[in-house]
Write a protein that binds this DNA or RNA. Structure first.
Lengths: 247, 247
DNA sequence: GGGGGCCGTAACAGAACCGTAATGCCGGCG
DNA sequence: CGCCGGCATTACGGTTCTGTTACGGCCCCC
């Protein structure tokens, strides 16, 4: 994903001021006057973020699905901007899958801050019903878990627990927090309840050799494994997995 | 996470109109006039989302860290609202870890849409609280330490100790202070306990050649070395490498 | 009304971790 | 040059926490 931001708007003044603000913040900027043009431009620039004008509910929905379908923009964040008096409607874009919205005329600092925030966010939000981690694929809408394409049956509690962990991949949760977050609100459970359900989940995942994606963090709780990111070059580093080394 | 939204603002008119909009959308609403009051109210209502007023950079940063530290609000989403003319500054709250921001006076539909969007977003979207020192990167939320992108496993005590030192980078702490600051409050430990844990930490860091970032200050205690900033502008920081023996 | 799946609780065994004590090493000081 | 205070390092026993299994109750469906 190249770092460009694509501004789509028919008003030149808007584009110019946005371009200035973004350029000052170090972003590359591309422009287009309407959605069809934007799709062409996106083919060349592969923008990581797109500003889309509010054109009414129907057109925006179509524009969003077009952008989500096209390859160069599938993984782009999308911010919808709209005149101040239309911002109430434009906010609906958030329900339609946009990542943020912004009123015009905009404040330059706010615009840059929102762009930064959007890009910082994982883009998982665009497909809230499908959660994945490694070979796992959990479809919340269908209430179905598949591993390597093979379906695995989950009990309701197991499903809620796994879904919650998938939604917050990598974060550590205490047993209490898990009970609060992944259990029906009225229920009162305690003790080793979470442990047991974790155990049952791991048991289900074991045949697929991915029972270790649910990790225990001793004296704190549990978390879903997430591969270490930011593997910036470190060639000469020793292997730490087997620290049998002594001095 | 109980479904309440907590409105913090000193203007009653703002709170009333927001309450109406949210209530119409089916949310429970609680109110508070300032942050200290909010913390009390949050203890009872356990809000899933909090509206915080923009009070300047420093106060907001402190309010955020307070809310992230307190148990009932640790995993609440936070939206900062600010008068239109301050929205540019308020957007900075996004960098500080807020989930969204909103200009006043607000549009009711936009407010509700933003609340929905925030709550729809997984917690993971929140900015991780990362502490860094040189090649070290410690994420408290994920409970994970990576060095040069490699994950390193820490025991609970090691993690607490390292986190504490990272939070107070460069400061010297006596063993007593470390026990008080980085250990559970009820525990009673003394003697060479800290020494041993420092040793174990250094042992873990050694394969990465950064075991010397935990420095011994003879007859005082320990501290974390302030790493040399990358070439530019390290002017205001004292050089710690030289006077490692006494002060 | 019966049966099966699901869930929460209790109990036990094992592992991980922590604190303490003992010993060796180094630098400072008389 | 030798003593002494302070730190590093190692080893070890006790404690805490977790994994695992078994059991009984509940609810839903048949």
């Amino acid at each position: 994903m190249d770092g460009a931001v694509l501004l789509v708007h028919d008003g030149q003044a808007v584009r110019v001021s946005a371009r200035k603000a973004l350029a000052a913040a170090g972003y590359d900027v591309a422009e287009a006057v309407d959605v069809p043009t934007a799709l062409q431009v996106a083919g060349r620039t592969r923008p990581c973020l797109i500003f889309l004008p509010w054109l009414g509910r129907r057109p925006v929905r179509e524009a969003l699905s077009e952008l989500r379908a096209a390859d160069p923009t599938r993984r782009s964040r999308i911010i919808v901007w709209a005149e101040q008096n239309e911002i109430g409607d434009a906010a609906m874009a958030l329900e339609l899958g946009a990542d943020d919205c912004l009123a015009l005329p905009f404040d330059a600092a706010e615009l840059v801050a929102r762009v930064n925030a959007c890009l910082r966010r994982p883009l998982a939000a665009m497909r809230p019903d499908e959660l994945t981690a490694g070979p796992l694929l959990l479809d919340k809408a269908m209430h179905r878990l598949t591993i390597h394409g093979r379906e695995v049956a989950l009990s309701p509690a197991e499903f809620r627990l796994l879904a919650f962990l998938l939604e917050n991949q990598g974060r550590v949760f205490s047993r209490e927090e898990l009970l609060r977050g992944a259990w029906p609100k009225n229920i009162s459970a305690g003790g080793r309840t979470v442990d047991v359900h974790v155990r049952r989940l791991r048991q289900l995942l074991e045949p697929f050799h991915c029972d270790d994606i649910i990790q225990t963090v001793r004296s704190f709780g549990y978390r879903l494994a997430v591969p270490a990111r930011d593997a910036r070059g470190s060639a000469e580093l020793p292997d730490v997995s087997t620290h049998s080394t002594q001095l």
